[in-house]
Design a protein around this nucleic acid. Structure first.
Lengths: 293, 293
DNA sequence: GTCGAACTGAAATATACGTTACAGGGACGG
DNA sequence: CCGTCCCTGTAACGTATATTTCAGTTCGAC
C-alpha cells in the first residue's frame, strides 16, 4: 500500500515524463503490437480513457480478447503493471481536468493584474461550487446564536481575515472575541472555553501546528469549531464540527485568500439575513452611537 | 462492460438515474453523515473525483479515516458497493468528457453563496479593468524599494486588509510597519514620517475622518501615499500620489473587500516578481529560520 | 454522575483481481 | 506434409482489496 508510491514512480519506466499524451503514445507504438493486442489498444483509444479504468478482465472482454493479452499490451507500452498503467491514466485525467481556468475570457496574454484576477475568479467559482450548503447553513446558525460566545483565530497570513470577520460580527452580536497575540497566550482563552463556545478557525497550507494544537484542546473541551480552510483541508478538519473549504491557488509565491474572504463575507451577510430586523435595528443604533446622538 | 450489465444495474440502487451530479448529491447528503464520514466526503469533494478512484484504503488514509468509514459513507450515499460507487464516478467523468465546456451556465441554483460569489466576481472583473496600469506599476516600484520605510493603515473594516498586506510584505523587505491602535495613537508615527516614507492607506465608504486627517498630515510632511479605495474614491485621493480603486458593491449591508484583496495580492505578487531572486532567497532564508536551522 | 446509543478502527474473512505458467492452435518456411 | 515459432486463451496461483465483525470509546440524554 504505502510502498506502491515509490514502486509506481520507479516502475513507470519507458514513458514517464514525456509530454506526449498516452493516447498519442499508443498510436505510435501500435505497430509493435500483435493483432489481438492491437484490438485491445484500439478499444482503449475508442473509449479513452475509461476503458482502461476497468479491470483488465472487463477491458479484455470489451475488446474481445483475454485479460493476459491486455496485460501484455500494457507491458509493451512500458508500464510495469496494470496498476501503474491506471495510475498514469488517472494522472493524465486529473491534469486535463484542472485546465478550465483559461476559459474566463480568451485573453491569453494580459498583464499580472489580469492573470491574478482570472485566478481569483476561478477560485471564487470553485469555492462557491464546493462549499456544502448544509455546512454553510449550519455555520450561520451557530454564528447567529447570540448566546454562544464566539472566538475567531487564524494563522500567520489568515489571522487578518479572522480580524476582518470579527470586526463585522461585533456589530451584529455580543461576545465576539478575536484571539490575538502570541500562540502561547492563546491558551489562556481555553480556560473559559466549553461546550457552549463556538470557535471560527482559519488555517490554510502550510498548516500551523499551534493552531492545530489549539483546535484539539478546544474540541476536547467541547467547543464547536467552524474551520475555514483550503481545498486540501487542514488537519483541524479532524476535530472541526463544520468545514468550509476555499480554493486558493494563485500565480504567486503565496496562495490567494479571496476564497476565504468570499466565505467570510457570505457568512456575515447570511447572519444578517438570519437575524432579520434585529440586525438592522442594531446597525442603526450603532450608527447613532457613532454620531454621538 | 457489456457483461457486467446485470450486476451493475442491479447494484447501483438508490441513486441511479437522477440528473444531479454526484458531487451535488454528496453535498446534499452531508448532513446525514457522521463526523468522520463527513471528513471522507470532504476529501472526495476536494479532490473530485480522483480521490474516489483510489482504493478504499488509500482514500481513507488521504482523508485521515479508516477504510470501513469510507465504505460506510459510500453505503449511505446509496451505493451497494465500493465498486458500484467507482463505476458511478467513471460514468459521470465520461459524461463530462463528452460535453466540451458546458460549464458556464445551466445552473439554476442561485442561493446566497452563489449570489455573493457572482457579485464578487463582477467586482474583480471591474477592478482589474479599471485599475490604471501606470498607477499599479508605480505602486509596485515604491513598495519594492527597500530603502523607503513602509507604513500601512486602514479603516474600521479595512484595517485587517492592511494587516494582511503587511504580513506578506514583512517577508519581502524590512521597515514594514502596520499602524495599529487608536486613531489618536496614529499620530505618534507622524513624528518620524518624511519624504522618504511610503504609506499604503485603505479607505472605503463610509470614509473615515481620522484616516483623512492622518493622510493630509502625512502628505504635508512629504510622504508618498498609495491609496487603495472604492470606485467612488475616498477624499484621500486628493493627497495621494497613487490611487488604486476597487469595485465593492455586494448583496449585503456591507461592501465586499474582495476587490481590495485582489489589488493587495496582485501588488505583493508583482513585488516578488520585481525583486526576482532576491525575494526567493529571502523566502528560503526565512523558512530555514522558522524551522530552527 | 450514570446509562444507553452511536461512532470508529483493528482485525478477521471472503472475494476479486492481477499475474504467471502452460498448452492448444495457426502460419509460415522447409 | 511436417516442424518450428509465435500468438493466444485457459487455468491455477498468490496477493491485494472490499467487506464484515466486534470491541473500545465517545458523546449526549436523563
Amino acid at each position: 500500500m504505502g510502498s506502491s508510491e515509490t514502486d509506481a514512480s520507479k516502475k513507470r519506466a519507458g514513458n514517464a515524463g514525456n509530454g506526449a499524451s498516452l493516447a498519442e503514445q499508443i498510436r505510435r507504438d501500435l505497430g509493435r503490437l500483435t493483432p489481438n493486442e492491437r484490438r485491445a489498444a484500439h478499444r482503449l483509444l475508442a473509449d479513452f480513457p475509461m476503458a482502461g479504468l476497468d479491470t483488465a478482465a472487463r477491458f479484455g472482454e470489451a475488446a474481445g480478447v483475454s485479460a493476459p493479452t491486455v496485460l501484455r499490451m500494457i507491458a509493451k507500452l512500458g508500464f510495469a503493471s496494470y496498476g501503474a498503467f491506471q495510475d498514469g491514466l488517472k494522472q493524465e485525467l486529473a491534469a486535463q481536468r484542472e485546465t478550465p481556468l483559461t476559459k474566463g475570457g480568451a485573453r491569453p496574454k494580459g498583464d499580472a493584474l489580469d492573470a491574478f484576477a482570472l485566478a481569483a475568479i476561478a477560485n471564487l467559482r470553485a469555492t462557491a461550487e464546493n462549499v456544502s450548503r448544509e455546512e454553510f447553513d449550519a455555520a450561520v446558525r451557530l454564528i447567529a446564536d447570540k448566546r454562544r460566545p464566539l472566538h475567531l483565530l487564524g494563522g500567520r497570513f489568515t489571522d487578518p481575515i479572522a480580524a476582518y470577520m470579527a470586526a463585522h460580527l461585533r456589530v451584529l452580536r455580543p461576545h465576539v472575541q478575536h484571539i490575538e497575540g502570541q500562540p502561547t497566550a492563546w491558551f489562556d482563552r481555553l480556560l473559559d472555553i466549553g461546550k457552549a463556545d463556538v470557535i471560527v478557525l482559519f488555517d490554510i497550507r502550510r498548516y500551523s501546528d499551534d493552531l492545530i494544537a489549539f483546535a484539539e484542546r478546544a474540541a476536547r473541551q467541547g467547543a464547536r469549531i467552524i474551520l475555514i480552510t483550503d481545498q486540501w483541508l487542514s488537519p483541524i478538519s479532524k476535530v472541526a464540527r463544520h468545514v468550509l473549504p476555499a480554493h486558493v491557488p494563485a500565480p504567486s509565491v503565496w496562495d490567494s485568500s479571496a476564497g476565504l474572504l468570499l466565505i467570510v463575507e457570505a457568512l456575515t451577510a447570511a447572519v444578517v439575513a438570519a437575524q432579520g430586523d434585529v440586525a438592522r435595528d442594531r446597525l442603526e443604533a450603532l450608527e447613532r452611537l457613532r454620531r454621538g446622538d
